[in-house]
Structure formats: C-alpha cells, structure tokens
C-alpha cells in the first residue's frame, strides 16, 4: 500500500490538475472553543478522474470539499480550480466560478419543486444566460435515462430519478469539477448503484472530473482514487480501490495503526 500525500506546491506531472488545495487550514472559533477542521491539507485532483474523499464523522471531509468548491473560505493556504485561484474571491467572482467551473450534487437532491425535470437540468445554464448544447443535452439525458421523465416535476419522480436529474443538472454545464456530497446517502442500494455507475461512466466517457464525499466503502469503490481524512489531515490514499481495500484501510485507520 503506497501512501503518497502530495506535499507543498507540487504540481501534477503529466496529468493536468482540475482542482488543488495548497496547505489549507480551516479553523472555526477562537481561543478555548477553537476547532481545527483542516490542518495544512494539500491535495491535487487530476482532471478526468473520479476522486472519493472518505473519513469518519468530524474528519473534515465535508469541510475540505466545501473549501475546494469555493463554498467555504479557508483560514490559511489557497485553493485553485483549474487555473483560477478561488481563495479571496468576492461574491461576484464566486458566482461566476459556480456558473462556469463547478457543479454540485447533494445528498438531498435539492431540485426546485416548481420546475420540471428538464427545466431543473438546464437551470444553471439559464441562470448564466446560456443555451444548452442540444447534442450534449441529449447525450446527458440518454446517459441518465430520463428522456421519458423530462416533463415531470420532482414530486412525481422517485428518489433515484431525482438524483439522476441532479446529476444531469451538474453535467450539462460541463464544469471543470463536479462536487458530490454523499450523493447516494438518501437512496436505496439499487438506485445508489445506478447513480454511481452513471457518475463513473461520465468520467470514463466524457472525461468529467468528479469529487465525491462519502462514508460508504462501496460507493468509494467506484472511484479511481480514494483520499482518507482523519482529524483534519490526509492520512492515507488509495488508487483503483475496491470495497474491500477501502474497508481495510478504514479499519486500519480506525484502530490507529
């Protein structure tokens, strides 16, 4: 088992980097009540790869993702998405970043109940004032298998279907990175497997970069690479994981070995 935690400002060699965190600290509160969520974390996420972030509750995995996505500010260090430095951005630039370079998939699906599936999918483009690329839209729709559900409203769809709509929404704008926060957390195992296969396929077929936070070893096994966090630091890493190797690593980390 190799443990290669990227250090310093090392840039990815050969593979371009989609997102990168450089010696990031995230500290909440001050004095006695101070909580360190991230402790000098540096990580590079390769373009066209499916990366999973794992770790127990409170390990800082969600915080890391929020910081990488520009949803949360970092206390020290900096974050880049593509060539863009996210740290220190004002709201206007952040909004533009979210429109152009970032996509989100949430555990709670977070679809707008007033819009149809199709409208939900094209919403980020509409907000940015862009027209969807028809061919790409069709490809995405067929990939997620929602063609006959486009005119339905979220309340008329099952959980799995809703999450597939959310995936399509993230994909359709072709962002630099898609951040998925426990995307299968609210789904049964069958629907979860569908969504995960779909995410992996979009990495394989379309070269989409995806970062997923999860605590489910099976979900993590769909990824190309798994990063393990504990107490705000990256403690381990795994390439080409299987459910078993992930579970093993977690057990090892749990026992503090």
């Amino acid at each position: 088992m190799t443990l290669t935690v990227a250090q310093g400002s090392a840039t990815g060699q050969g593979t371009p980097v989609a997102a990168r965190a450089n010696q990031v600290w995230k500290v909440y509160g001050s004095g006695e009540a101070q909580v360190v969520a991230l402790r000098e974390v540096s990580v590079e996420l390769q373009r066209g790869a499916f990366t999973a972030i794992m770790g127990p509750s409170g390990s800082g995995k969600s915080t890391l993702m929020h910081c990488l996505a520009g949803l949360d500010s970092v206390t020290r260090g900096d974050v880049h998405i593509g060539q863009t430095k996210v740290t220190g951005m004002k709201d206007k630039a952040l909004t533009k970043l979210r429109r152009d370079q970032v996509g989100f998939i949430f555990q709670q699906f977070n679809l707008l109940p007033t819009l149809t599936a199709e409208e939900n999918i094209t919403l980020p483009l509409s907000i940015a004032g862009r027209k969807p690329d028809k061919a790409w839209f069709d490809t995405v729709i067929d990939t997620v298998g929602l063609r006959d559900r486009l005119k339905h409203r979220p309340t008329q769809l099952s959980g799995g279907q809703q999450q597939r709509v959310a995936c399509a929404r993230a994909l359709v704008a072709r962002p630099e990175v898609i951040f998925a926060d426990e995307p299968t957390g609210n789904l049964d195992s069958k629907s979860g497997a569908e969504v995960l296969s779909f995410l992996r396929n979009s990495v394989r077929e379309f070269g989409q970069t995806i970062v997923m936070v999860t605590h489910d070893p099976v979900a993590a096994s769909y990824a190309d690479r798994v990063i393990f966090l504990a107490d705000g630091s990256i403690v381990s890493e795994l390439y080409e994981p299987t459910a078993d190797t992930v579970l093993d690593t977690m057990k090892r980390l749990d026992t503090g070995a």
């Binding site: 206007k92 909004t95 979210r98 996509g103 989100f104 977070n110 980020p124 907000i127 940015a128």
Partner: peptide, 16 residues
C-alpha cells in the same frame, strides 16, 4: 432558505 442556497450554489448571483 435551502432552495435559495441551492440556486446560489449553481450560479445564481446576489442581484438575481
């Protein structure tokens, strides 16, 4: 609130 957050997350500006 949650919906507004989502819209902001997928690129809705403050003014929008």
């Amino acid at each position: 609130t949650r919906e507004l957050g989502l819209l902001r997350a997928i690129g809705l500006g403050r003014f929008q």
